[in-house]
Nucleic acid binder design. Structure first.
Lengths: 151, 151
DNA sequence: TACAAATTTTGTAATTACAAATGAAAATAG
DNA sequence: CTATTTTCATTTGTAATTACAAAATTTGTA
């Protein structure tokens, strides 16, 4: 469905405006499907992203700055996100001995197990959307997006 | 900058996962720039979108359902969004005489003036991002996004 | 009338935004 | 070399927003 139909616009829209709307709308569709999966695991998208970042550290602890800079949405309140994950026993948090300003966050066994359980569902979700596109088209889409946001 | 560098991933990412991340991240970049513009006008993106929807009605009032279905992010609380716009005098709200369950929302002169003032700034923002892409590439990006989200 | 559907509002808990505050380390001045 | 200032890293306060479900109101219908 074209973006014009979705927002039910009857006047013509410039290609630039159309692109912004398309990006916003598409992200929304993907994020909502994402949310749907995570909801049954009582995780928000941001909490899930933090867990993934921590798993990517492969045992090496991450401090708050590192987590923040790797998040997709930089605006989230990392402290309180980690608080929530702590309460659920999905991460550990301790003061860094070398620099006591920093926190060392690691993912727990429970956190890793949760991610392992989620992995196939997330992967299916990711593949579902690309389904109508050939690998070349997907590659093309990625390149265009990258180029698009580079100002 | 490639999405792998942004999230500082050292392990390979599937093209499907890469696409999801790219869409999420790009939307975030665009939305933040958007927000930056609207902030000085004391408007949130959603409030702005509601105003645009109302302007698109060309005088014809819109009820809450209509507004909701045309919004990019369907999840917002339309009642309270409109409340805020009412407080600022940017919209009018009255009960529909034909069906008293419905509300008739219209944009005020003040709302139209605000949009008129914003228009060139928003347009510049939209054009800024597409700048590195030819019109054909933009067209292509739109088509790919549309195809991508169609499941 | 009584019941179901449509439309909007409200309650309230969780999350986000943004600025200010805290605490620790590093740099600088006397 | 100690006191002071600046910078870094994180947390906290609080107001605004969002999420989600329940409630309220009006309409249509058996």
């Amino acid at each position: 469905m074209k973006i014009e139909e979705i927002i039910k616009s009857n006047s013509p829209i410039s290609i630039e405006k159309r692109t912004v709307l398309n990006i916003m709308f598409t992200q929304n569709v993907v994020a909502e499907a994402f949310n749907e999966i995570l909801k049954s695991f009582d995780l928000s998208v941001e909490q899930f992203n933090v867990l993934r970042i921590l798993r990517g550290q492969k045992g090496k602890p991450a401090n708050m700055c590192v987590i923040q800079e790797r998040m997709i949405a930089k605006t989230s309140n990392t402290t309180r996100l980690v608080d929530k994950l702590l309460l659920k026993g999905l991460v550990n948090r301790e003061v860094c001995e070398q620099n006591r300003r920093k926190m060392e966050i690691t993912i727990t066994e429970k956190g890793l197990n949760l991610l392992a359980e989620l992995d196939p569902k997330i992967e299916a979700h990711e593949k579902l959307f690309g389904y109508n596109l050939t690998p070349e088209e997907l590659e093309n889409l990625n390149n265009l997006l990258e180029k698009y946001r580079t100002i």
